[in-house]
């Protein structure tokens, strides 16, 4: 079988398009590269959605934690502690079991012109269930980063905004938020990278790979078990992750440059990749 045929068969295998059976015997390098690459679709999907949504919820959670009103501050603190203090691994297991015991019903959401039926069974599928866990997790971690940045916004800036007559949401949106983002961005870049790496955990924790549609690590684990040779499949998945990590660093550095464009060059904060780690 030529490599072109392999790409057609397995290029989108992780989302259920292409050949049904996974390669079993005489596994070629091309098959490994293509199938593991196809698994990366899952990692990118989960990380992209979770980080994008998590960004907004984390901003809200960080302001809630910094709030002087205990009605906001206490729950925010508890949420952050819960998700930062426990392993993501256990969160996945717990989340999955929680979603399994949800009553199996469908909710109808009328949208006027059409009606969407939301099934609770979707929660036990990785595309929604794991996404929710990852979303909560990144919300908690990012909120802690944003909270730290929020507290280091220079008080002079805030006082200046007040003397200009800004208050409430306007002050937040025009003065506090941009500075907060600028201060938090280097750490937030790392958070995005870790979350991307954490997506590799999904199919090893409760969430079943339905019809063998799994992520990159799922397939490389499959190959390592089939060929008894870890020295091919794992370096391939490592290569893919390094590649996408570089993409994240590139994108986030661009944003960082924009956030820092009014700052004197020698005072700008640089995105420095710090190695980490599991959560």
């Amino acid at each position: 079988m030529s490599c072109g045929q392999t790409i057609l068969d397995y290029g989108l295998r992780s989302i259920g398009i292409g050949a049904r059976l996974l390669p079993k015997a005489d596994i070629t390098l091309c098959e490994q590269v293509v199938l593991i690459g196809s698994g990366m679709i899952w990692n990118v999907y989960l990380a992209l959605i979770a980080v994008t949504l998590g960004f907004f919820s984390a901003t809200m959670l960080a302001t809630a934690k910094a709030s002087s009103n205990p009605i906001f501050e206490r729950p925010a603190r508890a949420f952050i502690f819960l998700f930062r203090g426990s392993p993501l691994f256990i969160q996945f297991f717990f989340g999955y079991e929680l979603f399994v015991i949800l009553p199996k019903v469908g909710f109808d959401i009328p949208l006027g012109f059409t009606t969407i039926t939301v099934e609770t069974a979707w929660f036990t599928k990785a595309w929604l269930g794991a996404l929710i866990v990852l979303f909560f997790n990144t919300t908690a971690y990012s909120a802690e980063i944003f909270y730290g940045a929020l507290r280091s916004v220079p008080s002079g800036d805030i006082e200046a905004a007040e003397s200009f007559g800004m208050s409430g949401f306007k002050r937040f949106r025009r003065i506090i938020w941009p500075t907060l983002l600028r201060l938090a961005w280097p750490s937030y870049t790392n958070e995005a990278i870790f979350l991307f790496h954490a997506t590799a955990l999904v199919f090893f924790t409760g969430f079943p790979a339905w019809q063998q549609r799994g992520d990159a690590l799922y397939y490389s684990n499959y190959f390592a078990e089939k060929t008894f040779n870890p020295f091919v499949a794992y370096p391939i998945v490592a290569g893919y992750f390094i590649l996408f990590t570089l993409v994240i660093i590139f994108v986030f550095s661009r944003v960082n440059r924009r956030l820092n464009r009014h700052i004197a060059p020698e005072l700008r904060s640089r995105v420095r990749y710090r190695p980490q780690i599991i959560r």
Binding site: H197, A198, A200, L201, F204, L217, S220, N221, A224, P230, Y234, V237, A238, F241, I242, T245, L246, Y273, P275, I277, I278
Partner: peptide
Amino acid sequence: RGVPDIVFFM
């Protein structure tokens, strides 16, 4: 750096 540690654990 750059590689998820879970890959190393596997």
